[in-house]
Design a protein around this nucleic acid. Structure first.
Lengths: 207, 207
DNA sequence: TTTGGAAAAGCTAACCGTTAGCGCTACGTT
DNA sequence: AACGTAGCGCTAACGGTTAGCTTTTCCAAA
């Protein structure tokens, strides 16, 4: 188990990047469905099997930065300022992501995704995985042994916020609309954790 | 456009059922991934093309009742008792579904789904479609011209509740845990729509 | 330095879900 | 009685993905 920092690792990363670049170029030129895996491999000058050694599926070629979002979400929880409330940190992170997606450079890629059902589905299941990771991070932050239902619920709500905001006419306004709802839900789940005097008398109908 | 009620329609329905039955039998016997489409078609004694004329994809063979859940969710909104609150009706519906899935007979099929990533993904995207339908129903019920961000948010939260409850150790307890959170979110989105005196001072940070 | 191991990349050939194209038969309608 | 068409079948193929095996390239221990 040595740290992979030699020429080998660099070459591997280069190959991966070459493939991702070639794929994105072709997809943007002619559309995702119109370009086959074999073509992408040829354009990147690698074998098809090599391509699949770097990416688990065709859709993954488009979501190259996949892991960054997951790390961002988890990091928003684990590396937030000492006494910043959880939900506030998550809100900042989601807002940043949404802004990033609405920015100029990201527009063609977003169109690519929205025009292909396969890519849309893939993105959704990606986000679900991120929700699981976030739930685990929330549990850890709260000192819980494992992700409880409340953690998982909050995590999904946050990921939903991300998706919904991006689909909205005015993404930033949508974040401002959704996060108060999440804060209220959070206040019910953890009474006494939010800002003092916020919402305490929850509509508790259960035992 | 005549109503399809003749022998032809009956035969078509019979073929469809024959295929679904054969598929489920084989899948339960040997596992979803271990059975090919060509095998299912052979077992049902139809051509592969006929199978795909009745089901849009292999996964759809397992989610034969797909539309029932969607109709149930939408119906919970449109056909609820005159003055029953929206969220209460949705809670009843979700609870009923969760109970139904936890029942004896459904266990083998659920195991089938949970053991296959393809089926899990398919179920998730099914539920997202249901969320869209629910959002539209919510908008209609509220007299809105189209599904706003709030409608879509609520719809997703409800669908999340369904998924999360089913994955929880104690599904019914999970529903009791999640729905108060949804009610709080709802109260923030529509202040003055819930039970009187519930939650009024929302943490409104937006304009 | 040599040598051995293993990771990275390649090739071929296939599997499997899915679709297109075309023909046939049985049903429903006029 | 005859026509239109829905349902079904067959063949062949396409496109994503994987298995099996060989070759090349790097790295490290001897």
């Amino acid at each position: 188990m040595t740290v992979p920092t030699g020429r080998r690792a660099r070459k591997k990363a280069a190959t991966r990047q070459k493939i991702a670049d070639a794929a994105l170029r072709l997809f943007l030129e002619r559309g995702y469905e119109e370009v086959g895996i074999r073509e992408v491999a040829a354009e990147a000058d690698v074998a098809v099997t090599t391509l699949f050694a770097h990416f688990p599926a065709k859709e993954a070629l488009v979501f190259e930065r996949d892991q960054d979002f997951e790390r961002g979400l988890v990091g928003a929880v684990t590396e937030r300022a000492p006494h910043e409330p959880l939900v506030a940190a998550l809100r900042r992170e989601v807002l940043a992501r949404v802004r990033h997606c609405a920015a100029e450079g990201a527009a063609p890629v977003r169109r690519l995704i929205e025009e292909s059902p396969a890519l849309r589905r893939h993105e959704e299941s990606m986000l679900l995985r991120h929700a699981d990771a976030l739930a685990a991070a929330l549990a850890a932050d709260l000192g819980l042994p494992r992700a409880t239902t409340v953690c998982r619920t909050l995590a999904r709500f946050v990921v939903d916020a991300h998706t919904l905001a991006r689909e909205a006419d005015d993404p930033e306004a949508a974040v401002d609309e959704i996060f108060p709802m999440i804060e209220a839900a959070w206040a019910v789940a953890f009474p006494g954790a939010g800002p003092p005097g916020a919402a305490d008398q929850s509509a508790a109908q259960l035992s």
